[in-house]
Simulated assay, not measured.
Amino acid sequence: MEHSTLKIEGMTCMGCVRSLTNALSALPGVSHVAIDLESGIAKVDHNAAMTSLDALGDTIEGAGFELA
C-alpha cells in the first residue's frame, strides 16, 4: 500500500471535496481518500500496482482541478 500526499488547486467548497473524493475512491486499488479543503491537501492510500500517481493526477484533472 502506498500513501500519497497531493497538493490540489481549484477546490472552493465541500462539494468540490465530495466530488473529488468520489472520483478518486472509484479508482481501482484506492482504499482511502482524505481531502482537506483549507490546505488543498489530499492523502490517498492506494495499491501502486493498480493505480499510479499519474492515474491519480489524471483523475484530479479530469474532475476539473489542478495538481500543484
Rank of each mutant, 00 (worst) to 15 (best):
M1W: 02
E2N: 11
E2G: 07
H3I: 11
H3M: 10
T5F: 09
T5Y: 14
L6H: 01
L6R: 05
K7E: 12
I8W: 03
E9F: 03
E9P: 02
E9M: 10
G10L: 09
G10N: 04
G10I: 07
G10Y: 07
M11G: 02
T12A: 14
C13H: 08
M14A: 12
G15I: 11
C16V: 10
C16A: 15
R18K: 15
L20N: 06
T21I: 12
N22F: 12
N22A: 11
N22R: 15
A23Q: 14
A23S: 15
L24Y: 06
S25H: 11
S25C: 02
L27I: 12
L27D: 00
L27Y: 05
P28E: 09
P28L: 07
P28Q: 11
G29K: 09
S31Q: 12
S31A: 09
H32K: 14
H32C: 02
V33N: 04
A34L: 10
A34P: 00
A34Y: 11
A34Q: 13
L37C: 08
L37Q: 10
S39H: 10
S39G: 06
G40K: 04
I41V: 14
I41T: 10
A42P: 06
V44E: 00
V44T: 06
D45E: 14
D45H: 08
H46S: 06
H46M: 08
N47C: 00
A48Y: 05
A48W: 00
A48F: 04
M50A: 15
T51W: 02
T51I: 08
S52Q: 05
S52I: 03
S52W: 01
S52K: 05
L53Q: 08
D54E: 08
A55G: 00
L56N: 01
L56P: 00
L56C: 04
G57K: 09
G57V: 01
D58F: 00
D58T: 07
D58K: 15
T59V: 00
T59I: 01
I60D: 00
I60L: 02
E61K: 13
A63E: 11
A63W: 08
G64N: 11
G64V: 04
G64W: 02
F65R: 03
E66K: 15
E66P: 00
L67G: 02
L67R: 05
L67I: 14
A68Y: 09
A68T: 05
A68I: 08
A68D: 13
A68E: 09
A68G: 14
